[in-house]
Computed example of a mutant assay.
Amino acid sequence: MVFVSNAESLTMLLNIDCGATDSDSTWEIDEKFIKSGQNMQINTTITLREMTTLRFFPDGIESCYNLPLLGRERYLIRAGFYYGNYDGLSNPPAFDLRINGQYWTTINSTLTEDPIYVEMIYPVRRDSVKICLVRVHNNNPFISSLQARVLPSNFYKLMENTTILNLHSRIHFGGERDVGKSTRFGGDEDFNRIWKLKQMYNYHNVTSVRIPYGSSVSTENWPPYMAVADGISPPNGFNSISMWFDLPPQTSQAYFVFYFKEPEQSPPVSLVRRIEISINGHQMALTEVPQMDKDAIQVVSLYPVPVAGSANVTLQRAEGSTFPPIINAMEVFTSMELSRAELAHHYPFMVLAFLHVFGLSMLLG
């Protein structure tokens, strides 16, 4: 499904089934976005349509998709990869991804049945984005799917306009399955995000009032109901929840989002759930889970959080709290700055304004 601007055929939503030969109401073929590579149908039992085909690139070093997107918008951009032993070599390749000439990540494909997804939130500066697959060894790069979805400007409100957020984890707790329209199970995610179920066997699963299926919560970042309806809490006698996030070794700062929802259907008057959030031993925030109604969700965003390749997150029962902490969902991003070339598309109007105001007087001395 593609929403097109009348003026320049720029898209707000783009779902590309790489290597496919026919489109449907959700996915379109990739031929108008790239001129190199070869299509391949995969013999697999996987049920995701977009993972049954791929485009591989036997020639050249770099092969690029050109996506017509809206300038000055933030996009969720996700690439999907399913090797499926399409070449019969049982040798899944590794290769790099670049976005507008800037290193994004390295793809290490596997022989497993689980697709690999990489995702970022990208501040688009011009009316197109170039995503390139770069050969780093003798093996051929390939790609199965490519998606772009414009996000409301108030999402991820601490994100700077010159920063890229690379998704590390988007997880929810206490539920039964992944949530999101791109999963084989379907879901109620309105912004093309995938919320992976994180099993935490050392903690108790908690379930709140069941909320109507098929809608999101009108709070910060609009999380889907199915991702926040359940959560986890520490076992009896314990007052904290701990999680470890193994971030890339070069990571210096990260963006964390915490989603809290009270599971008690008829909370007692004495119920107070205050939570202290610490990362790597440093207290970062103190919050209280609201008791107002079944739709009340507390969202805590933290950025920039200094890290050194890893993050130990602790949710501790805070002073004055009569109940232990809970957590329903989380998002963790690493950040990097836009390349100088992209920044030049962001700041030219500021340079011109500066010269207009100061340039003549500076030249005259």
Rank of each mutant, 00 (worst) to 15 (best):
V2R: 10
V4P: 00
S9L: 11
L13H: 03
I16H: 05
D24R: 00
E28R: 02
D30Q: 05
F33Y: 15
K35M: 09
N39C: 08
N39H: 14
R55T: 10
R55Y: 11
F56I: 11
P58D: 13
P68H: 06
G71I: 03
G71W: 04
E73T: 08
E73S: 11
Y75R: 06
R78M: 01
A79D: 04
A79R: 00
Y82I: 00
D87A: 13
S90R: 13
P93D: 10
R98A: 05
R98I: 02
Q102E: 10
T106H: 05
T106W: 03
Y122M: 07
L133S: 06
P141G: 01
F142H: 02
A148I: 06
K157Q: 14
L167I: 04
G175N: 11
R177V: 06
R177T: 08
T183N: 05
R193S: 00
N202C: 06
T207E: 03
S208V: 08
P212N: 07
W222G: 02
P224S: 02
S240F: 07
S240Q: 13
M243W: 01
T251N: 00
Y259I: 03
Y259R: 05
Y259A: 02
S266V: 00
P267L: 00
V269C: 04
I275Y: 02
M292W: 12
D293C: 08
K294W: 13
A296Q: 01
I297A: 07
V305P: 08
A308S: 14
S310Q: 14
Q316G: 03
E319L: 07
E319T: 10
I327A: 07
A341I: 08
F354D: 11
L355M: 12
